[in-house]
């Protein structure tokens, strides 16, 4: 039985690598079964299962939330997304990033500055306390 190398990775970690008999994945235009000597192909994946059939006939399942599948003569590569991605979700994320920037610009007292001010306050208080103690001791 001939096999083909298969790499499944996501941006955050390596998920699987090894020789397999077949890779089955949900491509954007339908279910794909990739066996050795498949023609070069590149496709987007839909969220769903990627199934690999190992050399000894065992099966392994991985869930991917989308990604890219590339077939080369020697290797099948699955570049998995780490989270569900859709056009409108991405756009919402972009909007949020913009809004946060606007808020940072508009708001003079955002969280960092408050934290900084608090730190300075604590320092000043400590110094005042020390001074107070010093003064008391001098009086005695």
């Amino acid at each position: 039985m001939s096999t083909i190398r298969c790499d499944i990775v996501s941006a955050e970690e390596e998920i699987f690598h090894g020789n397999v008999q077949m890779v089955v994945a949900a491509g954007e235009l339908g279910e794909l079964g990739i066996a050795p000597r498949h023609a070069p192909l590149i496709t987007r994946l839909k969220p769903g299962q990627v199934r690999v059939i190992l050399e000894n006939g065992d099966e392994q399942f991985f869930y991917v939330s989308g990604g890219i599948l590339e077939v080369q003569p020697q290797v099948v590569t699955v570049l998995a997304d780490t989270a569900i991605r859709a056009k409108d979700l991405d756009e919402a994320a972009a909007r949020k990033a913009k809004e946060e920037a606007e808020r940072a610009l508009a708001n003079r007292t955002d969280a960092i500055e408050v934290a900084q001010a608090q730190a300075e306050l604590a320092q000043a208080l400590a110094q005042l306390q020390a001074l107070e103690r010093l003064r008391k001791n001098l009086k005695h």
Partner: peptide
């Protein structure tokens, strides 16, 4: 300044950077 992403924590996720 057209966008910000803060508080990514000790294990940043790609999802937090997409925007």
């Amino acid at each position: 300044l057209v966008g910000t992403a803060t508080h990514l924590g000790e294990k940043p996720q790609v999802a937090a950077l997409v925007g």
